[in-house]
Design a protein around this nucleic acid. Structure first.
Length: 603
RNA sequence: GGUCCCAUAGCUCAACCGGAUAGAGCAUCAGUUUUCUAAACUGACGGUUACAAGUUCGAGUCUUGUUGGGAUCACCA
């Protein structure tokens, strides 16, 4: 069942019969006809005029005539300049429609003839355990989750992975600060969420560190020297060495504080509705990274400097020299990435692609990572893919944790739910709800607004978030689409109480009148769904799904406004419109699910 | 400085591998309710797609240059 594909096959046949042009149906450019012209699909004929040796108009006309004469799918066609607009017959539309609507078989798998099932791992979230999640992480989490779901929908086998960055100098910083200035404070004693408590000490460290640098600079040191010689940073470095040596008191502190953070993260993940099939901890993989470094040294691909630090020279490839291991033997950021990647391909030998959902500020890092594996001769090096997304900026510019301008994830979620509660109560939508039902709804709507707001923007692009203006609930928003779904449910609920319409799902529809444009618009759009999922999976882009489902919701609302559904003048019309509403609703629900957004049946 | 990315309506974003008269939402203004949910619908206003050349049937999209903004090139992660 693929209308476009069927039509493309016919066009290909026409091109061959008329002009002896051999072209695969997939490579034919077919678009939905713009509303200002008559027709359903449009073929741009310019690419064929060289072979046809006719004007664009005449070429279009011939192709149209050929299809019209040889197949019974076309109701009409017209040519405007170089554009051939093809109108499918109502009978053809209904045939497709009954296949989908009547059988109610709407789990539209998108497996095309050419698609091969791939084994994919999507790594996303990947937080540091020294501070709570902020808006940037939210974008990461939503993107990663959605991309994974879209890939699954397109028929791939997908594993979601999270790599917890639980060790390193930054973790030692918050540990040191807590040890020194914490007075034994715990989440219980302070009432702070664990990740926020630890984050507080990370900030504290930075403050003290800055103070010391200032002192040293007053005493005549330059900035670089001061940064290296500040006692507090030296202590943190010592702590890192102790950690790598497995010092028991350091390990104990580390375990305790990370435990607090995990509790906090779990709560946030739960609220965001994201999940993982596999969790990696950097503390368990960084040693593998050291082994890779050793391997590279043996192979002569890496080299050691006098101070013991290990480097790789990538200048031939247009990059720089890159540090892989510090002089004191401790590992850096990329060390563990080397280890984790290798581990994953060992654990999952059939893995075709490893997608890293990581911000575009790390493009250089992933270029280096991939290149190193290529040099090491790992056969899977080309399967590494950096899904690089843009930053979330504030009107004042970049979010900076040190300057306290970050938008905290937990606070943001809470605000969204609060706004949703206020709006919904003001509209009087939940008068027949229990308290519990109402709270569930507020949460669904608040998160729907947030998720849609973030996912509708092309992942690659930098986006702007203005905390002063709360995220909208009207117009091109999550709640608008959720509302459309709730409306559909409401109509269906009412219709199912009527004798003649009760079993509309089980009835095949014979329409005894021409299909109306607004009905056809919805059908046409719904049938795009497989293409949309396929495209979104190829591009790894949830925004394609977001734009699509918004358009569908708009089409439905116009239709809903103009056409009576359950109480149309004829039963046949009601049956048809109910089924139409039903598949539109299911499509909306499925799209929203791909973005991790829940849809309410009443709001 | 080297490398890379971005620039579309007052604001936030679209534009399906180069296709028809560049579309939505917000904001502003004017309408729509005895009829299935007005978080909706209809209309108006709003553009030299940063600028300048080039490529061709055709450019927001591709090439080059200019201007403006961002990222990155750490013994940070």
């Amino acid at each position: 069942m693929n209308i476009e594909h069927d039509l493309k096959i016919k066009i290909a046949e026409a091109l061959y019969a008329l002009y002896n042009i051999t072209i695969s149906p997939e490579s034919i450019q077919l678009t939905e006809t713009r509303k200002e012209f008559e027709g359903d699909f449009t073929l741009v004929v310019f690419p064929f005029i060289k072979e046809s040796r006719l004007s664009p108009e005449e070429t279009g006309k011939s192709i149209g005539e050929y299809i019209s004469n040889n197949f019974n799918t076309l109701a009409n066609f017209n040519v405007v300049k170089g554009f051939l607009n093809l109108g499918l017959s109502d009978g053809q539309w209904l045939e497709y429609f009954n296949e989908v609507g009547y059988l109610n078989k709407f789990i539209l798998k998108v497996k095309g003839n050419d698609s091969i099932v791939k084994n994919v791992m999507v790594e996303y979230s990947s937080p540091n355990t020294n501070k709570p999640l902020h808006l940037g992480h939210v974008r990461n989490n939503l993107l990663g989750y959605s991309v994974a779901e879209i890939l699954k929908e397109a028929g791939n086998s997908v594993k979601k992975a999270n790599l917890i960055n639980d060790r390193g100098i930054h973790i030692c910083k918050s540990m040191l600060a807590w040890q020194r200035w914490g007075n034994g404070e715990t989440p219980d004693s302070s009432g702070l969420k664990g990740d926020h408590l630890v984050g507080k000490y990370y900030v504290k460290f930075d403050k003290e560190y800055k103070k010391e640098i200032e002192e040293l600079m007053k005493n005549g040191l330059n900035e670089d020297e001061a940064k290296k010689q500040a006692p507090v940073i030296i202590d943190a470095q010592e702590m890192l060495i102790k950690w790598e040596q497995g010092d028991s008191s350091v390990m104990e502190l580390w375990k305790t504080m990370n435990g607090w953070v995990y509790e906090g993260f779990d709560a946030t993940y739960k609220k965001l509705g994201v999940d993982f099939d596999k969790i990696y901890y950097e503390s368990q993989t960084y040693l593998l990274g050291k082994a890779i470094v050793e391997e590279g040294l043996q192979k002569g691909i890496f080299y050691k400097k006098e101070d013991g630090s290990v480097w790789v020279d990538l200048t031939e490839d247009g990059l720089d020299e890159k540090l892989l291991l510090r002089g004191d033997g401790t590992s850096v950021y990329i060390t563990q990435d080397l280890g984790t990647a290798a581990l994953r391909f060992e654990e999952y030998p059939n893995l075709d692609q490893l997608i890293y959902v990581v911000g575009n500020e790390q493009e250089y890092h992933f270029k280096v990572l991939k290149l190193i594996f290529k040099k090491l001769g790992k056969p899977w090096w080309d399967g590494l893919y950096h899904l690089s997304y843009g930053m979330v900026n504030l009107p004042s510019g970049k979010m900076k944790s040190r300057e306290g301008t970050v938008v905290d994830a937990d606070e943001l979620i809470e605000e969204m739910v609060n706004t949703s509660r206020d709006t919904t109560l003001a509209l009087g939508k939940v008068e027949d709800f229990t308290m519990e039902q109402a709270e569930k709804l507020f949460y669904k709507l608040g998160m729907g607004a947030l998720k849609y707001y973030i996912l509708k923007v092309d992942a690659k692009k930098t986006m702007l978030f203005n905390p002063a203006e709360s995220i909208d609930f009207n117009g091109n928003t999550g709640p608008f689409i959720q509302y459309t779904y709730a409306r559909i449910c409401s109509v269906i609920r009412k219709a199912e109480k009527l004798d003649g319409l009760k079993s509309f799902r089980q009835q095949s529809v014979l329409l005894d009148r021409p299909m109306m444009q607004k009905e056809k618009d919805i059908l046409r759009h719904v049938f795009q769904f497989p293409n949309i999922v396929h495209g979104a999976a190829t591009e790894l882009s949830p925004s394609i799904v977001a734009n699509y489902v918004y358009e569908l919701a708009k089409l439905f609302n116009t239709f809903y406004h103009d056409c009576p559904i359950a109480d149309a003048e004829k039963v046949n019309t009601s049956l048809f419109r109910l089924q139409l509403s039903n598949i539109a609703g299911q499509t909306i629900k499925e799209c929203m699910r791909l973005m991790g957004i829940k849809v309410p049946e009443q709001m």
